[in-house]
C-alpha cells in the first residue's frame, strides 16, 4: 500500500470547511472575504476570526488549510494583498496560494517561513517556468493549468522537483489559466483582478415562456429550453450565432471528472489532487470530497476506482476528462 495522493478540497464557508474535513479532506483551501481571492462572491469566504477558528478545527482533525491569495493586486492597493498573506501566516495557514509576481516576491522576503504554492492563475505550464518560481521565490508546489495532457504533466514532473497539484473535479475554463478577460469585456470585472468571473451583480436571469434567459452585463448569452440543463452565466459557456451556426462556440457547459485518471496522474508524478468549487454548497463539498477520498484510498491500496456518479452535481450534468485526454489533437 502506498501513501494516498493528497486531496485538496474547496471551502467557501466555515460550514463547508467542516463538511470537507469530516468527509475526509487531507487539506482544505479557502480565502478571505474580499478581492484577494478568485472566488469573491456574495455571501462567501472567511472573516479573519472565522479563518482562525476554521484552521484550528482542521488542525485539530489532522487536516491542513491553504489560504488562496491568488488574484492580481490592483495598482496602489497592494497593501490589501500583503495583509492577506500576513494574516494567513499569523492565523496558522499551512501554505498560501499565490499568483502575482510582486506578491510572490514580497511573501518570499517578508515571510520566509511561510510555504508558498503557485496558483493555477499563474499559468505555469512547463518545467522551466516552474523552476524560475522555485528558484526566485521558494515555491514548493505548483497547481498546473487545466490545459495539459497527462503526458505533458509527466514531462513536467521529470524535469522539476517542485510538487505538482492538478484539478480532478469541477468547473472548467477555456482559456489558459490567469489570462482570461472575457468577463471584463461585458462587466468591467474579471476573475484575475477582482476575483469574480461573471459577477452576480451583472447577471440577470428571466423566465421567458418555458425558456430560461441569461444576460451578462446586458448581453444575452444563452437561452435554455425547458428540458435543457442550465449552464453558469459565463461568456465562455454562452451560445452564440456565428458563420450560420448556433452553439457553444468557446466551450460546452460540462465539468471535469478525472477520477478514473487518478492512477495515470499518480504515475505521472502528481503529488496532490484538487477539487474545484469554493462557490458550491456544503452538500456538494461533502458528496464530492467523500467520493474522491474513497478513490484515492482505493488507489493507494491498489484497488480499482469505482465510478462516482457525480454528474448531477456537474454543470451541464455531464462530465469530461478535459485536456488530460486531448483527443482533438
Amino acid at each position: 500500500m502506498s501513501a494516498p495522493l493528497e486531496l485538496v478540497c474547496p471551502a467557501g464557508t466555515p460550514a463547508a470547511l467542516r463538511s470537507a474535513v469530516k468527509a475526509g479532506a487531507h487539506t482544505v483551501y479557502c480565502g478571505f472575504a474580499d478581492e484577494t481571492n478568485a472566488r469573491n462572491f456574495p455571501g462567501l469566504n472567511f472573516s479573519r476570526a472565522e479563518m482562525e477558528e476554521a484552521i484550528a478545527f482542521a488542525h485539530g482533525r489532522g487536516a491542513k488549510v491553504f489560504v488562496a491569495v491568488n488574484t492580481f493586486p490592483r495598482a496602489g492597493a497592494e497593501r490589501l494583498w500583503r495583509a492577506a498573506v500576513s494574516d494567513a501566516q499569523a492565523l496558522g495557514a499551512d501554505a498560501v496560494i499565490l499568483a502575482d509576481l510582486g506578491l510572490l516576491d514580497h511573501t518570499a522576503r517578508a515571510h520566509p517561513d511561510l510555504r508558498i504554492h503557485l496558483s493555477v492563475q499563474a499559468a505555469a505550464a512547463n518545467a522551466d517556468a516552474i523552476e524560475v518560481y522555485a528558484r526566485e521565490f521558494g515555491v514548493k508546489r505548483v497547481v498546473l493549468p487545466r490545459v495539459l495532457t497527462v503526458q505533458e504533466i509527466a514531462a513536467i514532473n521529470r524535469d522539476t522537483k517542485v510538487e505538482t497539484e492538478v484539478f480532478v473535479f469541477g468547473g472548467l475554463c477555456v482559456m489558459a489559466e490567469g489570462r482570461c478577460s472575457l468577463s471584463s469585456y461585458a462587466t468591467g470585472q474579471s476573475p484575475n483582478m477582482n476575483g469574480v468571473c461573471s459577477p452576480a451583480s451583472h447577471v440577470e436571469y428571466r423566465q421567458e415562456g418555458d425558456a430560461l434567459v441569461a444576460r451578462l452585463g446586458g448581453f444575452l448569452i444563452h437561452r435554455s429550453p425547458a428540458d435543457a440543463p442550465a449552464p453558469y452565466p459565463t461568456l465562455c459557456k454562452g451560445r452564440f450565432s456565428a458563420g450560420g451556426v448556433e452553439g457553444h462556440l468557446f466551450e460546452d457547459p460540462v465539468s471535469l471528472d478525472a477520477a478514473n485518471l487518478i492512477p495515470l496522474l499518480a504515475d505521472a508524478g502528481v503529488r496532490a489532487l484538487k477539487i474545484e468549487g469554493r462557490q458550491r454548497s456544503r452538500a456538494y463539498t461533502e458528496a464530492v470530497v467523500r467520493s474522491f477520498r474513497r478513490a484515492v484510498d482505493a488507489h493507494a491500496r491498489g484497488l480499482p476506482i469505482e465510478a462516482a456518479g457525480l454528474a448531477a452535481l456537474s454543470e451541464g450534468q455531464e462530465t469530461t476528462a478535459g485536456a488530460y485526454r486531448k483527443t482533438w489533437r
Binding site: 430560461l212 435554455s224 458550491r280 452538500a283 456537474s314 450534468q317
Partner: peptide, 10 residues
C-alpha cells in the same frame, strides 16, 4: 441539496 446542481437541473 446543492443550489448550483438544482439550478443546472432547472
Amino acid at each position: 441539496f446543492d443550489g448550483d446542481a438544482l439550478f443546472f437541473s432547472r
